[in-house]
Design a protein around this nucleic acid. Structure first.
Lengths: 126, 126
DNA sequence: AATATAATTAGAATTATTCTAAATATATTT
DNA sequence: AAATATATTTAGAATAATTCTAATTATATT
């Protein structure tokens, strides 16, 4: 685990948001590192391959990176905002149904967030 | 609903695969239409906005389009191959937990497909 | 210190997708 | 049916995210 990789992992693990490669790059530079965007991508790929981070893709915006500790996502169908929820674990239930050994699951629940329900806005996706 | 839109919708609804815009474009041309890739994208966007098709994004490959009738997906973590499964509906269960009104959900189950379990291959993602 | 290995860099290349403005088709009104 | 309005399609440029390449720098090993 290289220094940059470690820092990137920390940034992801200590964030409550779902950061893009660009955002991670900026945070990395805020604190000391002179790493370049390509380095961030390189490290993100390798962290992802090692299973140390999650990758979340939402339509219409760049991939976002997230901790691996299991949780599910709420996606607002209006503004695209992404938030975390912790639901009762479904692993066993799903495992029983699919038969073959399952590694993990990703669940996205589509809804309209309260902000979009009230005002008409197309806020930031995070 | 324009002629092209209708044809694209038919292609998606009659396919058992998860097609990319490119693949849809090719099938559209196979049967009569002179439509161009941009037209396919235009129509896919509008069909998607109307809620008539689903959009499935899997890491490392272009978006794929799918019917709206609810089903879930198995994603092979090795070759990326995508396949459908019909599981016991979770809507009620999830609805109870999240509180706010839910529109729909997308569930992706990660596993290793039998082909990858046996031979070492990195086949097509479909 | 010399060599080997791995990481990082800069920037070009690639890929998917969207945008723009012109051209064509379809529908509507006269 | 002709004239006008509206919507759709086209071709190709533009954009944006990501990957690749080759050179450079850093780290580890002999």
């Amino acid at each position: 685990m290289t220094k940059n990789a470690q820092k990137i992992l920390d940034i992801i693990n200590n964030s409550t948001e779902h950061l893009t490669a660009e955002q991670i790059y900026l945070r990395l530079r805020e604190k000391n590192s002179k790493a370049v965007l390509a380095t961030v991508y390189n490290n993100l790929s390798s962290l992802y391959e090692q299973g140390l981070i999650r990758k979340v893709c939402i339509e219409g915006c760049p991939d976002r990176y997230d901790k691996t500790v299991h949780h599910d996502h709420l996606v607002c169908k209006t503004c695209g905002r992404l938030s975390d929820i912790t639901l009762e674990d479904l692993t066993e239930k799903l495992q029983k149904q699919i038969g073959v050994p399952m590694i993990s699951y990703d669940l996205k629940i589509n809804y309209i967030c309260t902000e979009c329900l009230t005002k008409e806005n197309g806020g930031d996706k995070s």
